[in-house]
């Protein structure tokens, strides 16, 4: 779906939403040069259209003690994916899970982002998944440093 100019500006304009104002959308609407009511209506429309899934506060998880994070890639047969999807939905320590294309240099197709407060917890979480997936064949890619984490920008 192609967005019009105003919709594009709205999606990219959330950096001017003022969290520490009692009316946070006011400053954003002023930056976009529209009325606050119009902005709110347009965002609600984008939500209804399913382009915006939700408006959400981005949390700094490290402030909650989550300092040990790892991207773990597994070799999972496509016939097992459905069952596994149901199982990991209940495990809150897995935030992201994606099926990806493999390459000759990288044969792992199932990617899970795993979060923990300590090295021991991270080890336990990965072990839980290994038992659930009935495999010890995985690639553990521990996060050493966040180099960039930014809001999405829509170029159109």
């Amino acid at each position: 779906m192609k967005l019009n100019k105003l919709e594009k500006n709205i999606i990219n304009g959330f950096s001017s939403l003022k969290i520490d104002s009692i009316t946070p959308f006011k400053a954003m609407s002023e930056d976009l040069n529209i009325e606050q009511d119009e902005l709110i209506e347009k965002i609600q429309k984008l939500k209804k259209m399913g382009i915006i899934k939700k408006i959400s506060a981005r949390i700094d998880y490290s402030k909650f003690g989550y300092s040990k994070n790892s991207l773990v890639a597994w070799d999972i047969k496509s016939s097992k994916v459905k069952k596994i999807a149901r199982q990991i939905d209940r495990l809150s320590f897995v935030s992201h899970a994606y099926i990806r294309k493999t390459t000759p240099d990288f044969r792992y197709n199932f990617f899970t982002m795993i979060h923990a407060r300590s090295k021991a917890d991270l080890f336990d979480n990965i072990n839980d998944l290994a038992r659930l997936f009935c495999t010890t064949d995985f690639k553990q890619l521990d996060t050493l440093k966040e180099l960039k984490k930014s809001a999405f920008f829509y170029n159109g």
């Binding site: 950096s15 969290i19 399913g50 915006i52 408006i55 700094d60 829509y154």
Partner: peptide, 12 residues
Amino acid sequence: KNLIRGIGPNLN
């Protein structure tokens, strides 16, 4: 306290 990094849309 920077617990919140910002508020924005989760897009499809």
